[in-house]
Amino acid sequence: MTGRDKILYFLYLHRNGLTVLALSCLLAIYPLIYGNPYILGLTNLIGLYTIVVLGLNLFIGYAGQISLGHAAFFALGAYGSAILTTEWGFWPWPTILLVALGSGAVALLVGIPTLRLHGHYLAMATLGFNIVIYTVLVQWDELTGGPSGFYGVPSLAIGSWQFDSDLKLHYLVWAAALVCLTLALNLVRSGVGRGLAALAGDEVAARSLGVDTRTAKVKVFVLSAVLASLAGSLYAHTFGFVSPDTFNIFASVDFVTMVVVGGLGSVWGSLFGAALLTWLPEFIDLFESYKDIIHGLILVVVLMFLPQGLVTGLIDLARVRLARWRHRRA
């Protein structure tokens, strides 16, 4: 190999790690140059959504399942942290973990019976779960603050150093998002990740190769719930306020749309999907007013023409074209 080949091979071999590194640098520097608090608030939201969408994409894109209820796990994280730290005086950091474990346990209870279901039934079951949680948030107002929401969630702090500005929160949120992104990249490049991809591709074949499909589905569901809950806790501490409408079924549909736009089974696509669908409504008024309809339309149109999702679908098309072209030339 020549020196140039070696460098290219090194870049290829470590492409994921290097991309994470480059993105980290970019995210570390950009707020110092362009510290508009409004934009930072928006990118913080993108970081939080990315965490949710990463987990959901493992569940939908890798394990090949569907959930229309992930906003409920997001809600469990947000309200769990908010209520325990504000009303009960729990320490915020350990509470995040505690609540995440709790959400994981709820996912286990919900997942074991529902993940025996397929397609529409699974969609309905998870949707039902979301409606139950939403109703509890609205109705149980002594605890949750009811429809008007829950105020006064404390900021996270290290010692006496508070994460109380958009800038500081930017670093906190994106550190968490990048860690989750790295974990997801690790997972999909491992035997367990291939088992999940196999499960999405052909369940019978996956089982015959030794994938315990039922357990694998439940595990990914729990993992995705834990991630959603972590994001929810950070959300509560970031904005200091939570209201039920952030967690209704439309939010769940939004998460699925982000997965689909980013591309099923694409870790990087999760970031893209979360970013695009959070930015667009801020810049195009039409989007703002008809958000739910437009998201629904995007979902339907993408799934009709590119069942693998927008980014992955396009990449797949390109890959197939390229392979056919090489095949003809060979």
């Binding site: 291939r194 088992g195 991809a197 190769l209 030794g210």
Partner: peptide
């Protein structure tokens, strides 16, 4: 590689 699931760690 999927054929190596059994050896791939759980």
């Amino acid at each position: 590689l999927c054929g190596l699931t059994v050896q791939g760690g759980k």
